[in-house]
Amino acid sequence: MAPESLTQIFLGTLLANNFVLAMFLGLCPFLGVSGKLDTAAPMGAATTFVMLVASLCAYGLNWLVVEFQLEFLRLISFIVVIASAVQLVEMFMKKYSPALFRALGIFLPLITTNCAVLGVALFQTAREYNFLQSVVFAIAAGAGFTLALVLMAGLRERLNLANVPGVVQGTALSLMLAGLLSLAFMGFAGLGAGE
């Protein structure tokens, strides 16, 4: 495979292979936190930050694991390090931005079990990205997650004013909306691939 340029990685991950809408990663927070625009944006920012931290950790860990030929420990070490990183972020945020900490509430610790975060770590390893590529990949994944979250929140806020039949309300409606968004994002397919 030809080495991908940084722009290709960024655009491809942000739009064409959007983590939420094309790869189905991070659906729990996507469906859970996308009720209001005010919480969607900070949640996206926090996840992006954790992704970046996780990506850096994973890059270093992967080097260690390969160096000592302990590949079977890769998954376990990734998840433990990510969990600790989230804990650290939580503590920092509690100290320096209590308002944001309260706003995010329960969803902050849940970032640990956000498959998008582990997904970043696993995919960058599988695709053998170098350091710079990993960083760009993590930022693009986070930005894509935030984009999907904010779009969805906007749609759902608008739908609160609409007259929706009772049976359709709730998760079913969110999933249909997500399907439509995902259909729209398919229009980006091929972007970043052909240069």
Binding site: A22, F24, T171, A172, L175, A178, G179
Partner: peptide, 10 residues
């Protein structure tokens, strides 16, 4: 394709 997954589950 991805949208199909959302639609079928929905």
């Amino acid at each position: 394709l991805p949208p199909g997954g959302f639609f079928v589950l929905g």
